[in-house]
Structure formats: structure tokens, C-alpha cells
Computed example of a mutant assay.
Amino acid sequence: MMRAREKILHAAERLFAERGLGVSLREIAAAAGQRNNSAVQYHFGGRAGLVEALYEFRMTPLNLRRRELIAELRASGRETDLAALVECFVGPLSEHVLAHGGETWYLRFSSRYVLSGGYRHWPFSSEHHSGVNELVPLLHARVPGLTEERLRVMFLHTVMVLADLEQRSGAPGFGRADAEAAAADLRTTAAALLTAG
């Protein structure tokens, strides 16, 4: 049985994804089935605490997977393999989308949050992105002259494409094979963005 805190996180993720970060905390509490209008403040201290908790809720397993992929890459001596480096970033996020078939809203929430200006230095400024912070020096070593702006464009491209894929997943006429093909194409375009001259 899902606890109140987790119900609030799921409701917030969906409502933020659907309507943006201006959704009232009272609406989030109601959508989570909480009779107490102050439930969000009780569990998270307010909007900022809720957003941080939502990132922690989703990013903890994604970060573990990303760091696992980086460790495998290092162990196999593939630190200069661009496709493998891209997989370290794209892989955990696309695996999340494919595993849940549109039943979570994390990438749609992330796309809204990033475009709202919530993370001015995204994705370099948060402890939730330690796997990304470990990956970035490897990308710089592999792609000489790679700028922070180009990295940001690749990261934004990945999040926006996966938000769209999350939206389409489970829709009539869009099956698992379509989702896997879209995720594979994303890996190709992400690598191309990094090396485009």
C-alpha cells in the first residue's frame, strides 16, 4: 500500500507535468487523496521541498544505474567509445520510460521544470546529478572543444524527446517496438549533437 508521502509525489509529478509548476499545493494534496489541505507542507515543507523530494525519488535509482554503466565502461576500457558514453546518459532515462510505458510522468515533469528556469545551471548544479557530473569529464575528453552549451543542448534534446516518448507510450497504435525504435534513434541523434562541427 502506497504511503501518503509517495501518493503526494506521484500526484505532484503528474500535475506538474500536465499543468506546470504553478499548480497549488492544495490541489496536489487533493489529487493524492489527502483530506488535510496542509499535507504537502507537513511532508515536504513547501513547493521547493516537494520538487527536491520528487527529483530525489526518481533520480536516486536513475543515478545508481548511470554510475553502474560508467563503472562498466571504465572496467572495459571504453572511456573513448562515444556510443557507450551517450548510453551512460540516455540509457537510464530511456530504460525508465520503456519500463513504465507512459505510467509515470517524470520526463514530462523534468521537461516542464527545466524550461521553467527551475535549474539555471541544469544539469550541473545538483547533487541529484552526480552520475552526470561523473560522465561530463569523460565526454570532454572524448570530444575536444565540447562546450557546456553543446552539452546542455544534448541533455535538453534527450529530456524533451523522452518526455514526448513518455507521452506517446501506451497510446493506441504506438507499441513497444515503436518506443524502442524511438529510443534507439535518440541515442544516434544525441551522439550526432555532440560531434556536429
Rank of each mutant, 00 (worst) to 15 (best):
A48M: 03
L194F: 01
H96R: 07
P137H: 06
H43Y: 15
A11R: 02
V51R: 02
A183Q: 02
L162E: 07
S125Q: 10
A39R: 00
A181V: 06
R3V: 14
G145E: 04
A177V: 11
G33L: 03
L186H: 03
A184S: 09
M1P: 11
L54S: 12
F174I: 07
I8R: 02
L98E: 12
M154G: 04
T104C: 14
H43Q: 11
H121I: 12
L54T: 10
E56S: 14
Y113H: 09
P144F: 00
H121Q: 14
N63A: 15
S130K: 00
C88Y: 04
L193N: 06
L146G: 10
G175F: 03
L156I: 03
A12F: 05
L98G: 14
L98F: 06
G117Q: 12
N133D: 13
A31D: 07
L85C: 09
A17N: 08
S24E: 15
L138A: 06
T104N: 13
L62V: 03
L64F: 09
V114M: 05
V153D: 07
A32E: 02
S24G: 15
G173Y: 09
G175W: 01
L73D: 07
G91P: 06
E68S: 10
E95V: 03
L156E: 03
E6S: 13
L50D: 01
E148P: 09
G77D: 09
A29T: 05
G145W: 01
A30C: 08
A12T: 05
V132C: 02
A32N: 05
R19D: 12
S110F: 00
A53E: 12
G102M: 11
E13M: 13
A196S: 14
L139E: 09
G20R: 01
E6T: 13
P172T: 13
T80A: 15
E166R: 01
N133S: 08
G20K: 00
V161T: 12
V153E: 08
A192L: 10
G175P: 06
H96A: 14
E27M: 09
P144K: 01
G49Q: 00
L135G: 12
A39I: 06
E68C: 07
C88T: 07
E127R: 00
I8E: 02
L186Q: 04
G77W: 07
E27K: 07
S116Q: 08
P123G: 06
L151S: 05
V97G: 03
T80C: 08
S126I: 00
L9E: 07
E52I: 04
F124E: 14
S116C: 12
E103K: 11
S38M: 11
S38V: 06
E103G: 13
R14G: 10
S110M: 10
E166I: 10
R67M: 04
T158E: 04
G197R: 14
R187N: 12
T195E: 12
A12S: 12
L162P: 13
L25A: 08
S94V: 09
L85N: 01
R65E: 14
T80S: 14
H129W: 00
R35I: 10
R150M: 07
V40L: 08
V90C: 02
E166N: 05
R150W: 01
N63S: 15
A196P: 08
L165P: 04
A30K: 04
V97E: 11
Y113R: 02
